[in-house]
């Protein structure tokens, strides 16, 4: 039995499978090709005498839309109840990658950001201040060059600290314009019947944008919770 379940999320082509392979010693296909990973892959690694299960998710630009890859990734992060989620981020195009990080932070606070491809960023004269990014996001940020295995020990350490509650994250809260915030708080009141494990604010947001698939996911979770 594994002690902890960790999911690997991120935009397409940011190096998730490379991180996964490095940590688990497996051989998931990688390639400079957005969308290379189609299904989730499972693997294991040991750190400090504990066993971690790592799940390599398909790359997605967001957790909102409804393409099959996005569904797989979204459902796993929301309903798979991982102990932590590592979001692999491309240091050379931070803005778009942060969009996904922020969405993950809305679902869960158990997040480590893996700032990957820093070698490529350096080559393009892009400097990212990881410490400052960590402060802004309120979660640990680890710089890595996954392809050469640089920074992965530190990544494991941060995951270890996080799942043991040795670091408390303080994820950035997104404040939407007042018109939307009002609707959110109205809706949250009506969602009191949801199980504790679900983030009601997040569910309210999805309902407000008419996400049908979320209802199905919730039904399944509630059925499990009551049976």
């Amino acid at each position: 039995m594994s002690d902890y379940l960790i999911s690997l999320a991120g935009n397409p082509n940011t190096g998730k499978s490379t991180v996964f392979n490095r940590l688990t010693g497996l051989k998931q296909h990688t390639g400079n090709w957005p969308g290379k990973t189609v299904l989730q892959a499972w693997g294991f690694y040991r750190y400090q005498n504990e066993q971690y299960t790592l799940v390599d998710l398909p790359g997605t630009y967001s957790l909102l839309a409804h393409s099959p890859e996005e569904q797989v990734a979204r459902d796993f992060i929301c309903f798979g109840q991982p102990d932590a989620t590592v979001v692999v981020v491309d240091a050379t195009s931070l803005e778009r990658n942060l969009n996904l990080v922020l969405q993950v932070l809305e679902i869960t606070s158990q997040v480590v950001v893996c700032l990957n491809l820093v070698d490529e960023a350096k080559r393009k004269n892009i400097q990212v201040n990881a410490a400052k990014l960590g402060d802004e996001l309120g979660v640990p940020v680890v710089e890595t060059v996954a392809r050469r295995g640089i920074g992965l020990k530190e990544l494991q350490e941060q995951i270890h600290l996080l799942v043991h509650g040795k670091i408390k994250t303080n994820p950035l809260k997104i404040h939407y314009p007042p018109e939307l915030e009002n609707k959110i708080s109205d809706l949250i009141k009506q969602l009191h019947y949801l199980p504790e494990s679900l983030n009601k604010r997040w569910v309210a947001l999805r309902l407000l944008e008419g996400d049908q698939s979320i209802l199905r996911g919730i039904q399944e979770v509630t059925r499990l919770a009551f049976s």
């Binding site: 803005e95 942060l98 939307l180």
Partner: peptide
Amino acid sequence: LIVTTLYDYARRIANQVTVV
């Protein structure tokens, strides 16, 4: 509104932590 807000945050943070 949701997407626009998220991207506003993303851009603000990215600009603060990146030097090109």
